[in-house]
Write a protein that binds this DNA or RNA. Structure first.
Lengths: 330, 330
DNA sequence: TTTTCCATAGAAAGCGTTATCTTAAAGCCC
DNA sequence: GGGCTTTAAGATAACGCTTTCTATGGAAAA
């Protein structure tokens, strides 16, 4: 087993086998070919641990996400996975349950020597990013995606949150709605602010004054969407349209609206963000902003691998365009 | 860095440090305490690759699943993750895209020396399990969950598919439905047969003769549910209730039914399987069979770890109970 | 021909642990 | 108190690779 066997069979040294196997320069093409074909014949697999130990590179990428039972994140993971596999990396999964304490615990316990790099989407209550900074200082490259910490100098990949929110709000305006509320995300998140700003900007550009009571911050669940929506209709001044920070909340809002006897899509317009398959299940089908989740996963992973291969590769931010998907809720 | 540093600081040998760190027997409690506290102080993390190389155990568990963008599987993963972390294991993810070719490719390429064991749910078109048998013969323990290969002698964990299907069908019967159709899964899968048999058995026990044209095999998607449902209503003999192999197909069926102008929940009853959150989004809310997905993940992982720690641990099969969740579609 | 250089390959020293084999000191028995 | 076991710890050889340094033969240059 191992390169030793190949070396003996071919009567060459282990060093040569090692070099031949990862197309090094100073090895004769003929020798190389012999090694390659024998390796294939013997179904040789290099011992990852040995090579990781000797070379320092593990070909493992860690992925930290708040949840996995969620269309957006699981799609991102699929994208990461595809890119990783194609470049010979494996992905190791860490789920923070959207909880900072658990996130810190995970990060501190992860054996950074087991990972070449990290892909992370922070949890909603993440206020400090010290644990990530420590890791980066130790030389572990990190690429943040979707839920990014605004003030960290690291590569980031996300959808155009501002533009998407602008698109959504503007669509509502085009359709004649004027009293537009926003079901925002948790207040600490960068993504929440971006989408909020997109909303505010669209309103302003259309000359519509914004009503602070029309903005409700809360988590990302369907239930929170339902609750916030009910709050919106408590007062005298009631909105005629809702832009939700994600589809789950939009769905919650639609359900609340329907229970209140409103005709969604006519009397009141609702637009979401993500393009989760549930948009096709709720009635009326949800108009939403499509996020390129798979592509975000792919590109984050590509970027991370660049950082891994070249430690002096400079941090960059990638923003992918979102698109409007018109359905029946507006 | 490393145990060497601790050894030097404490003026003891590396061997002693190594032993002290994983509570070995022949080390003085006092020495051990010193080592432990210094290790903590220095925030020492053992190099995983080195220990994996030396000991042969990597503390990595591979998980092979068809999809991740799916409530059931992502919940199972959360369960696996929780158990794995608590026992000091990491999980490495492999997504087969429900494609046998890709699954084989993944399995053959995975460096089994990098994994202590494997947790797998096979893809629908898996006909041969040779690749898994090879792996098991190489001494890699495998636990199958949910989608299991019937004829392999390995540990298996799943929900009570037969009982769940019986429960579902029987519920329909109790509610007065008599012409009950079944939207089955892909025909090769063990799970498909189990659920089909549960359905058949409930019918038989109630003295209802089964109508072969009321059984439609197809994949697990919402769209396939919709298509199969339409086929069901093509002929003269039309069912008055539908039991679907999963919630996605049940939702597709409900949508088809509604488009055909039927009143779901009265005129025709629909019951699903899984208890996916979409059951609360479709109207009427879907009555379904709840699967203990998180628990399946947890127990699969527990079982695998037992196999890892004790190679002669004998294979066993665990079946977890499903429960009926009554909502409005029946 | 002699010298220099390049292409190719071997030898051997790690990488940071674990594990086996010893050794040293201390405790125990009759 | 001499042999025996027990307890604690050191020395050292793996583990299977990567990598650096060195060696060799032949081609190119002089």
């Amino acid at each position: 087993m191992g390169m030793k066997l190949i070396a003996e069979k071919l009567e060459i040294s282990i060093s040569t086998v090692s070099r031949a196997l990862r197309d090094a320069h100073d090895v004769n093409p003929v020798t190389r070919q012999k090694v390659m074909s024998l390796a294939k014949e013997l179904n040789f697999k290099p011992n990852k641990n040995a090579s990781a130990l000797a070379s320092g590179s593990t070909k493992n990428i860690g992925v930290v996400i708040p949840f996995i039972t969620n269309y957006y994140f699981s799609t991102v993971i699929s994208g990461i996975q595809e890119e990783a596999i194609s470049q010979g990396y494996q992905i190791v999964l860490y789920i923070s349950n959207d909880d900072l304490a658990r996130e810190i615990q995970l990060i501190n316990n992860l054996e950074s020597n087991n990972l070449d790099g990290l892909l992370v989407s922070i949890s909603s209550n993440t206020t400090s990013t010290q644990h990530y900074e420590d890791l980066m200082n130790e030389g572990c490259p990190i690429v943040f995606f979707d839920r990014i910490p605004a003030h960290l100098n690291a590569s980031k990949v996300m959808q155009g949150d501002f533009e998407g929110a602008y698109l959504a709000t503007n669509h509502l305006i085009q359709k004649g709605y004027r009293k537009i509320a926003h079901l925002a995300g948790p207040s600490g998140l960068d993504l929440t602010n971006e989408r909020l700003n997109g909303y505010l900007c669209a309103l302003k550009d259309a000359g519509i004054s914004n009503n602070p009571s029309f903005i409700k911050y809360a988590g990302f669940t369907r239930n929170e969407g339902e609750v916030s929506c009910r709050e919106l209709y408590q007062g005298a001044d009631q909105p005629d349209a809702i832009f939700a920070v994600n589809d789950l909340k939009a769905v919650g809002a639609i359900q609340a609206l329907k229970k209140m006897g409103m005709r969604v899509g006519e009397q009141v317009g609702v637009i979401g963000f993500t393009d989760d398959p549930i948009a096709l299940i709720i009635e009326p089908n949800l108009t939403t902003i499509h996020e390129p989740a798979f592509e975000i996963g792919k590109q984050s992973c590509q970027l991370l691998i660049k950082h891994i291969k070249n430690p002096s590769f400079e941090a960059r931010t990638i923003s992918l365009a979102c698109t409007l998907v018109e359905r029946d809720s507006v």
